[in-house]
Design a protein around this nucleic acid. Sequence first.
DNA 1: AGTTTAAAACCAACTTGCCTGTTTTACCCT
DNA 2: AGGGTAAAACAGGCAAGTTGGTTTTAAACT
Lengths: 235, 235
Amino acid sequence: MGMEKSISNQDAPHSTAATTAEKKRPQRNEKGWQAEKSAMTRWSILEATIQCLLELGYANTTTALIANYAGVSRGAMMHHFPSRMTVMRAVVDYLHMLRLQEYRELMSDIDDPQRTLTHQVIRESVEAAWQYVNLPSFLAYQELLAASRTDAELRQVIEPVEKDFEKQFLDTAKAVFPHWQNLSRLEGAHDMVQFLMKGMALSHMSVRKKARAKRVMTYLTAILYDIYQEANLID
Amino acid sequence: MGMEKSISNQDAPHSTAATTAEKKRPQRNEKGWQAEKSAMTRWSILEATIQCLLELGYANTTTALIANYAGVSRGAMMHHFPSRMTVMRAVVDYLHMLRLQEYRELMSDIDDPQRTLTHQVIRESVEAAWQYVNLPSFLAYQELLAASRTDAELRQVIEPVEKDFEKQFLDTAKAVFPHWQNLSRLEGAHDMVQFLMKGMALSHMSVRKKARAKRVMTYLTAILYDIYQEANLID
DNA sequence: AGTTTAAAACCAACTTGCCTGTTTTACCCT
DNA sequence: AGGGTAAAACAGGCAAGTTGGTTTTAAACT
């Protein structure tokens, strides 16, 4: 009786995580292969979770689904993350890192050779912010943030991260606009950008999305320029 | 032995719905008592559902919880609403009506005797919009809207309502500002207000909420005034 | 080197609890 | 009495977490 139980009745229909950014498969007989494979499994579970959050929402993101998306057995997954909340914790941290990185990347494209803020530079930074809130990482994080409103455990996890993120986020903005002297006004401008972009992103405009977004960004650029001018007159 | 069945072994820790707007208890032996009582039960279930959405979120709003909050048995509830989604459908319609009503009420406080938009009038309407997005009805609706992104059945229910709401919402704004001629710019201004307010409301600012909201509203008022001026110059 | 041993990774089945919708039973008003 | 209303019990399904076992890797020992 060979038993052959390894037919693997696991059904893993989605290989989403794998398609996005397949990490180089570690070679066996290498030193520390196990550790590397373990890390890759963890990573694919995190990516799968994000995919689930985007496609199914927080409530419908079950441990079984995550495992399927990641292409691992539920047992394996529970080995790396002993509970659902443990996965979420890891995802929150992962997104924290990822979002900051992506934001900085977008902002680094904006260089400001004249050392003074032109209308054009402001416009570019506004458009970068719009790109930013349309990234998957932003949407996935919002899903967690929204769920945390009524999930005490998740809130405990996400709250300190959120605080830290906002701080670093604002600091990054300050670094991108070093000539902007008046801090209070910079913060106000920052709020304007964030709130508007968030509101737009979460509105899922059903009609004329592109045109309306463009118009809003035009208005926003104008007011930001005004705020900047005033801010530097005062100094 | 008056029977006083209202001892209600149901544990209904929250009497939220009752506190908000206790309808007059219908008197027995009145004509149509049953119909009235039935209507009141339905109403209290809707209010209870809204309360649940606010406190627990869509995913955690179970039929049993709703019944508890409403102070009815689950059986009674299933009599009036044969399924969970049926309740949600009714709540969506109820909120549709309620939100429009509340918005119009807030806007009706703004009268404009000079028949021309002053800075002050704009400021008041902005503040009304801020009040509006801080109403429970707004938050409850957002909860449903957010859930509908990943719940196909709910989306089918809420999508047409959402479309109709946006239309009526914009129409109301037009009615409040009849002197605002240039329609395109009015729509742009409307978008600015809605997106900003939504973004702020959903940001749950943890620090200096009041001051930041005030500052944002000041900026918003300024840009709206500018848009208005330009709009009327063009005409 | 080759074998043994411990640990890490993985897998499938079970348990328990909760949620929904249904059915059954009881009630009360006209 | 009987239609409309309410309460309770029930059945089916699903998801989280646990358990017990198997395979794979790394290291220790002879």
